[in-house]
Each structure stands twice: as structure tokens, then as C-alpha cells.
Nucleic acid binder design. Structure first.
Lengths: 348, 348
DNA sequence: TTGAAAGCGTTACCAA
DNA sequence: TTGGTAACGCTTTCAA
């Protein structure tokens, strides 16, 4: 029925062991023999049995990339870069390359754990976790335990855009969300803004907390009440829209809104537009992430650029072992991108 | 070292066979026994060995979802919906659920084939191919052959937003790109537009060809030269930007531009904006796909809505077998969404 | 309802 | 440089 390694061996008139060696290329094989084997592989259209290979070798070619929302280009860019780096990296078993796959947790802690178990079950070669983590202590502990088991079993664990986990991890590439947010708000303050609203991300996530903390640090440093004008919401457009209306209700005279990310900023802009307010002349809006569409969506948007592609690619290299893990986690900085948003507050 | 099924069996004082039966739940097991086994599983923190299981059962829990560009929300939405449907579907081996993973081909025929081979190697339970196909005859034949091998080996093959492949496929859910594009251009014609530019997608892909054909059908039906004002480019913003400038160079008096998709339309809008032209008052712009950001990016954009989420979810159900494959492929229609784009041509 | 045991297709060790 | 051959951990028939 299906062609096996034994069939190839028979056809090439060698032992199965030799075929395996040719395919894996880890052992010396005579050129003539190798030739014969490869021809047989081709003629029989042989495809290695991955499960059998993984069972015997106690490891597989699978690399899992976990993302919070696959429909969000933020993760798409990271995952795409990681997948490419992994594909280009060291070849996996049997001369084939590693199979980098992305798993969509939807931001759900349960699904995150489920995927980790599934990947553990598959004896994955590596796992890359991207984006913010849920901060529930119980879940955090469960994830840490799971990651420890994975590393113990030889699976490489890489964190990308996610804060380090004590000792359970091969490498961590955290984003400096706090610093980026602080610099962003400092920029607004320098322009003279004082009544600044904040649309934070979903509560209980590291990304949300860090960005919010950065914002508040800047506010506090300027002697302003840091917590007054904050609304939480999910990382989508609707959330920004609703939040902007709520902020305007609370403080009709606000002159700037700092949003959790670019997508949220888009919703903010839409709400302002409906209210007849212009960006950035009436209200300055800032985002975070600098996604490709934001320049069209809101040309006047000031945002923070995170090197998503670079971070993803590096995470991929760390996952394959093509790059040595850094001694300790060095946060990847986010730099404000000032497009047209240099408007000073006008007061209304 | 690692906990095996035998360890669980020993602890529960049953045979390995019984443990397997409890885990898979396909055979009757006494309630008390099952209880004991599950407790042992829990106490030992046992995780099934996927490769071993897949080897013995000759099939795995893996479902591959191939996308052309993971950073494009078009695919993200489809893949997310498919992944969710697959996760919610019939449980896979050992009571766990299916592992739906997305693979990013980057639109490259080689990577597409490579991923198919990798999934074949893993003995994937199903494969979902999304989005347009490259039309190179050689590649088409190679893919068809590969898909035939996959179905022969018991892997379900589902096409989502991709034209059917002769006999090699379990189910196909093609998008009616041609009809959607035709209706879109008809709309422009009804408004009185005559000098309509077209920014088509990358040459040699089914999606591009079908959308272009629909556009030209409408043009021809209106007695207009169908091929005059067409520029090809990739599915990204830059492509739209460049194409719009080129179209304006060729026909400064054009009053409408039909873009390959929403992302491209964004680039078109940006170029027009730079030229001091307003959308839709000076130039009407149409996109395709109706992605979430387009409403903010270009509120005046007319676009075609494809039910991406529904299509992805259905593809997922077809992949798990939760839904019976349709007798034959029924194209999923795309309906024009007229936001503010009802402007008639002004002539310039 | 349960157990015993024969595979499943590779890998990797030990010889030759 | 090559071959023989135990594992690897699970599933599944066949018996009991």
C-alpha cells in the first residue's frame, strides 16, 4: 500500500539502516550507494513516515508558534517572520525542513494550555509564544509548569513580545511596551497636552499593564493625575470606538487620546470623526504597533513602532537553534513614529 | 524518564490495552476501571505520545491549514474560523482534540508543495488549502498529484476560496470572485463611470484572473474596451499606490479605480490623496474582501463582501468530517457593499 | 469487560 | 562503509 523505508531499501539493494542514513545525512555513506538510494526514493515516490521517525528518534520536526489572534496582523507579521526563519534554518529530520505551524489561542488561557499540551504530545522540537500573557496567577503557574516540562523534554521554548518566565524558558525577547508607551505620552505632554484620555487593552494582560504603566509614569512625572481618564477594552476597532465616546462623555474637553494599539486607535478616530472632531487638530490620537494599514487609516496617527518582523525572525532562529540564546532577556525597544501628529492642543 | 502508557497501566493495575481504550473512548470500559485509569493519568501527569499513537493508528490528529499570506487578515480570518471549527469538532485520538495548524506559503508554489509533503509525512488527518492558486500548469499538476496521494492515504482535502481540483479533493468551497467583481464594476457603470482603471492582483493566480475577468465582462457588456486600463501588482498597499499613479499617468481623466482587494485599494486612496484627488468625489475607488480596517481606512470605499468567517468555519467542519461534503462545489457569492461610494463621475 | 501480544515504520547501537 | 536488530510507545485483533 504505502511505500516504506524497507521498500526503498529493497529496491536500492541496501539495508533499511543505510536508507535511513542517506535520508538523515548524519552518517557517512558511499557516494554510489547514496545515489542508488536517492534514485529509489524518487522512483517509488517515497515519503518518510513522520510519526515513526519521531517515535524512534524521540523528537519531531514540528515547531509550534502560538498567537493570541491570528486575524491581527500584529501576530501575522511576527508569525510569518518566525515561520520563514524556521523554514530557512537547520534542516530537520530526514533532510526535510522543520514544520513551523501557528496555533491560534484567541487569547484564551485554556486554549493556550491545550495547544501546549498538544505540542508536547507531538514532541515538538520548539515552541514560540508570542504577545502578551494573561496575568492570572493560577494560569501563569500552569503555563510555567508546562513550559518547564517542555524544556525538560528537550523542546526549545522561545518567548516573543512576552515577559520572561522564571527559568522555564530557552530565550525571551520581550517588547519594551512600558518604555514605548511612556515616550509616546511624553511626546503628547511636550506638545502641551494636559487632558489626555487613555484607551487601555483588556485587563489582566501583561501588554495592557505595561503600556498603561508607561503612560501613567509619564503622566505622573508631569504632575498630572495618572488614573483619571482610562477605559479598558479589547484589542479591536469597536473597543476603540466605544471607549472614545465614553472618554468624551467624561471629559468633553480632552485634546489627546492614547490608544492601546493601532486597531483601537482606528476605532477612536472613527468615533471622533462622527462627533465632528478632527485628528490631530482637535484631538491628537496615538496608537501602538505601527501596522501597515494605519498610515492609510489614520495618516495623522502617531504610533509606536515595534520591530515585529525582526523580532519574529529572531524568535524563529532561536527556536531552531540557529542563534544562541542571549544570557538574559533584553527588551526590544519601541520607538514613537511621529507622522503628522505634531498638533498642539487647541482647547475646545 | 518520561511517563508512558505502561506506567499508567501499572499504576492503575490494568493492562496497557485498557488504558488505551479509556483514553480513546472507543471501547466499553467499566466505569470503576475508567475512573482508576484517569486518576493514574492525572497523578502521573501523563501525556500521550503523539508520534507513537499516530504510528500505531496510521493517522494523526494534525490538520494543516495552508494560507498564502499569514500577515493578511483575509487569511487570518479564514484560518482563525477554520481552526476554531476544527478545535470544536469531533475529538481526535486519545480524547484530545485535533491540532489545527496554519502554514504560511507566502504565495510560493515551492513552499506550498513542501508544506503538503510535510503534512503528508505527518500523516495529517486533513489539509485545508485557502485562497487563490498559482496557475502554472506544471505546478497545478504537481499539486493535483500530491492531493491525490493525500486523499488516497485517507487525508481529507478541503479547498476554501480556491477553485476545485479534478477528483483529487474531498470538498471545495470556491469564492465567486468573478461574479463579485462583475457586480462591482456594473455598479460603477450604473453610476455613469466610463473611464475605469483596474488594479489587478499578481498575474498567474486564479483569484487575479477571476476578478479581472468579472471586471472585463462588465466592461465589455457596456460596450467599453475591457483591457485598456489595467495594471498588475501584488496584494499589498504599495502595489496599489504605484498602480494608481501609473493609471493616472495613462488616463488623467479617469473617474473610478477598481482594486484587487481592500489593501490595494488603500494604497490607491493614498496615491489619490497625494495627488489632491478626493475619494469618491473625484475618483471612486472599489476594493474586494471587506476587511475590518477598510471602513476606517477609506470610509468611502465600495467593496465586495466575502463571508470569510463562515467559509473558514465550514471548511473546518468539512476537514473534521463534522459536515458532509457537498455533492459538487457551490461557489460562495461575494456581495458588493456600498458604503458612501455612490458618487457619480464629475469629469475632470 | 479485560489481557496478551503482534505489529506500525524508523532510528541507532553493535558488529562486521 | 554497511548490515542486523533491538528498541520506541501505542493500537488493535484475538482470546479469555
Amino acid at each position: 500500500m504505502t511505500v516504506t523505508l524497507a521498500d526503498v531499501a529493497a529496491r536500492a539493494r541496501v539495508s533499511p539502516a543505510t536508507v535511513s542514513r542517506v535520508l538523515n545525512g548524519n552518517y557517512p555513506v558511499a557516494a554510489a550507494t547514496r545515489e542508488r538510494v536517492l534514485r529509489a526514493v524518487d522512483e517509488l515516490d517515497y515519503v518518510l513516515n513522520g510519526p515513526a521517525s519521531a517515535l524512534a528518534a524521540a523528537t519531531s520536526d514540528l515547531v509550534g508558534v502560538l498567537v493570541n489572534d491570528i486575524a491581527d496582523p500584529f501576530f501575522g507579521i511576527i508569525a510569518g517572520a518566525a515561520q520563514q526563519a524556521i523554514g530557512e534554518g537547520a534542516p530537520g529530520r530526514a533532510g526535510g525542513e522543520k514544520l513551523a505551524v501557528v496555533c491560534n489561542t484567541g487569547g484564551s488561557p485554556e486554549r493556550e494550555l491545550r495547544y501546549l499540551t498538544l505540542l508536547q504530545r507531538q514532541r515538538a522540537a520548539a515552541v514560540v509564544l508570542t504577545g502578551g500573557a494573561v496575568e492570572d496567577p493560577e494560569h501563569l503557574a500552569a503555563v510555567a509548569a508546562k513550559l518547564t516540562r517542555l524544556t525538560d523534554a528537550g523542546t526549545r521554548v522561545v518567548l516573543c513580545g512576552r515577559p520572561p518566565v522564571e527559568g522555564a524558558v530557552t530565550a525571551a525577547l520581550p517588547f519594551d511596551n512600558r518604555g514605548g508607551a511612556r515616550r509616546m505620552t511624553e511626546h503628547l505632554l511636550e506638545l502641551g497636552h494636559r487632558r489626555i484620555g487613555c484607551v487601555a487593552g483588556p485587563a489582566g494582560r501583561t501588554t495592557t499593564r505595561h503600556r498603561l504603566e508607561g503612560h501613567r509614569e509619564a503622566m505622573a512625572a508631569a504632575g498630572l493625575p495618572p488614573g483619571g481618564l482610562t477605559v479598558h477594552g479589547s484589542y479591536d476597532r469597536t473597543s476603540g470606538y466605544d471607549a472614545a465616546l465614553e472618554l468624551l462623555r467624561r471629559e468633553p474637553g480632552l485634546t489627546a487620546i492614547a490608544a492601546a494599539n493601532d486597531t483601537v486607535a482606528l476605532g477612536v478616530c472613527a468615533a471622533l470623526r462622527e462627533r465632528g472632531l478632527r485628528v490631530p487638530d482637535d484631538v491628537s490620537v496615538t496608537g501602538f504597533d505601527d501596522l501597515p494599514f494605519s498610515v492609510d487609516a489614520a495618516p495623522a496617527l502617531t504610533t509606536v513602532r515595534l520591530p515585529l518582523h525582526e523580532a519574529g525572525a529572531r524568535a524563529g532562529r532561536l527556536a531552531t537553534g540557529a542563534e544562541a540564546p542571549p544570557r538574559e532577556a533584553v527588551p526590544i525597544p519601541g520607538v514613537p513614529v511621529l507622522r503628522a501628529s505634531t498638533a498642539r492642543p487647541r482647547g475646545r
